Amino acid sequence: MEPENNTQISEFILLGLAEEGELQPLIYGLFLCMYLITLLGNLLIILAVISDSHLHTPMYFFLSSLSFVDICFTSTSIPKMLVNIQTQKKVITYADCITQMFFLLLFAGLDDLLLSVMAYDRFVAICHPLHYTVIMNTRLCVLMVLVSTIISSLHSLLQSLMVLRLSFCTDLEIPHFFCELDQVVHRACSDTLLNDVVIYLAAVLLAIGPLAGIVYSYSKIVSSIRAISSTHGKNKAFSTCVSHLLVVSLFYCTCIGVYLSSAATHNSHSTAAASVMYMVVTPMLNPFIYSLRNKDMKSALKRLLGKKTSKVPIVMRFKICL
Results as ranks from 00 to 15, higher is better:
residue 79 P to Y: 10
residue 90 K to D: 13
residue 201 L to K: 10
residue 239 S to T: 06
residue 267 N to P: 15
residue 251 F to P: 11
residue 156 S to P: 03
residue 64 S to T: 09
residue 205 L to R: 07
residue 54 H to K: 14
residue 283 P to V: 03
residue 177 F to K: 01
residue 315 V to C: 09
residue 200 Y to G: 10
residue 138 T to W: 14
residue 54 H to Y: 14
residue 69 V to P: 06
residue 17 L to F: 12
residue 16 G to P: 00
residue 208 I to L: 11
residue 184 V to R: 01
residue 275 S to H: 08
residue 165 R to M: 04
residue 42 N to R: 03
residue 131 H to F: 09
residue 272 A to K: 03
residue 68 F to H: 13
residue 207 A to D: 11
residue 219 S to G: 11
residue 174 I to F: 05
residue 95 A to R: 15
residue 243 S to K: 03
residue 95 A to V: 04
residue 288 F to I: 08
residue 159 Q to Y: 07
residue 115 L to I: 02
residue 132 Y to V: 07
residue 163 V to H: 00
residue 248 V to M: 08
residue 44 L to C: 04
residue 6 N to S: 14
residue 270 S to M: 12
residue 227 A to R: 12
residue 99 T to F: 15
residue 281 V to E: 07
residue 93 T to G: 06
residue 258 V to C: 08
residue 87 T to A: 06
residue 35 Y to R: 07
residue 296 D to H: 11
residue 127 C to F: 07
residue 309 T to E: 15
residue 54 H to T: 13
residue 157 L to Y: 10
residue 273 A to D: 02
residue 75 S to C: 13
residue 29 G to S: 10
residue 20 E to G: 00
residue 45 I to G: 02
residue 141 C to R: 02
residue 202 A to Y: 00
residue 300 A to C: 02
residue 40 L to R: 03
residue 56 H to K: 10
residue 28 Y to I: 13
residue 246 L to R: 04
residue 40 L to Q: 03
residue 226 R to G: 08
residue 220 K to Y: 05
residue 5 N to R: 09
residue 168 F to M: 03
residue 284 M to F: 05
residue 275 S to R: 06
residue 149 T to K: 05
residue 305 L to D: 12
residue 18 A to T: 04
residue 192 T to N: 00
residue 264 A to M: 06
residue 117 V to R: 03
residue 32 L to K: 00
residue 177 F to S: 08
residue 187 R to I: 00
residue 201 L to Q: 06
residue 140 L to W: 01
residue 197 V to D: 15
residue 104 L to H: 15
residue 65 S to C: 11
residue 138 T to S: 13
residue 288 F to Q: 07
residue 204 V to F: 07
residue 33 C to V: 13
residue 248 V to D: 10
residue 260 L to S: 01
residue 102 F to D: 14
residue 47 L to N: 03
residue 214 I to C: 08
residue 180 E to N: 12
residue 183 Q to F: 09
residue 210 P to H: 01
residue 275 S to Y: 14
residue 60 Y to I: 06
residue 110 L to W: 05
residue 250 L to D: 04
residue 292 L to M: 12
residue 60 Y to P: 05
residue 264 A to L: 04
residue 47 L to V: 04
residue 77 S to V: 11
residue 170 T to A: 15
residue 155 H to R: 01
residue 92 I to H: 02
